[in-house]
Design a protein around this nucleic acid. Structure first.
Lengths: 154, 154
DNA sequence: TACTGATAGTCAGTATACTGATTAATATTG
DNA sequence: CAATATTAATCAGTATACTGACTATCAGTA
């Protein structure tokens, strides 16, 4: 009888569960109220000023229907501005605000410490190897989810 | 600047996302409508007849507030029976039904093939190593989430 | 036994994630 | 250029996950 511990799917779920908990704990202790998903979106908006929501979704592999709510909350917190694109009236352009920039800067130590904590059972070498294997498995499975990772359209 | 691909948290999320998509696709193709979470719960109920919801939650590391809904849906699908415990009037005992047993049996090939597909980018050795590292990281972080893995109380 | 604390389960509320549909606008093509 | 297809975004609906509160019950102790 196959145990849960032999199921990569179960291990994936469990590791993610811990990763989220650690992230929220570290960030919360630093005095911020930002989820992992919101953080990734905010950082990506900062790195790609003026991008639209579909591009944002592709860069972090979120579903397009999920991104709407995530951006809603970032806007509501005053960290991001959303405005109609002048080039394509279907699209919304996203821009980080000064407040968003400030938050991102101040939150970084907590985010980094969270990444360390979630690997605390592993040696540095093992942590690297885990990330390598995850990247490899993810690359092979990229097209299997509804929200694959996408490059910026040239 | 740290990339998403260097963040174990992001990789965890992405791998889990693919794992769920693959599971649902395989199981759906086999003609069943069962989520990974429901599958794990069902298998655990079968292996531990008469267990209560808190014990079930501990065995698969689900939050106790999540398990309520999961069991609701299993009961509604006729796969599980929930009844008051005679020993403890707070608790509910869970039992798999014949229909649940049948479903579990018929769904197994799809579940196994899903586990293989989500590792298809890795060699057998790499897949084993990924699972080992995940298990190790999870063990070290077990207490960090609200829903840690728990043994059955002796 | 009465009091205190712990436990099983649920509920309301919020956030991710998806399916599938819809609207509005843009792109493509006959 | 008119018909068609595609695309950006949103919406309604469902399923995990969690926080924090609450009820009912049980267990331990003064």
């Amino acid at each position: 009888m196959k145990d849960n511990n032999d199921m990569p799917g179960h291990l994936a779920r469990r590791f993610q569960q811990i990763a989220v908990a650690v992230f929220l704990a570290e960030v919360g202790e630093a005095g911020f109220d930002l989820t992992p998903v919101q953080y990734a979106a905010l950082a990506t908006i900062k790195a790609n000023p003026g991008l639209d929501q579909i591009t944002l979704a592709g860069l972090i592999a979120y579903d397009r229907t999920t991104i709407t709510g995530v951006v809603d909350r970032l806007v509501q917190k005053g960290l991001v501005e959303r405005r109609a694109s002048p080039r394509d009236r279907r699209a919304r352009e996203l821009e980080i605000t000064d407040e968003g920039r400030r938050t991102l800067r101040k939150i970084t130590p907590a985010v980094e410490s969270a990444q360390a904590i979630m690997l605390r059972g592993l040696s540095a070498k093992e942590g690297e190897e885990l990330m390598r294997l995850l990247r490899k498995a993810i690359a092979a499975g990229n097209e299997l989810s509804r929200a694959p990772l996408r490059d910026i359209k040239a």
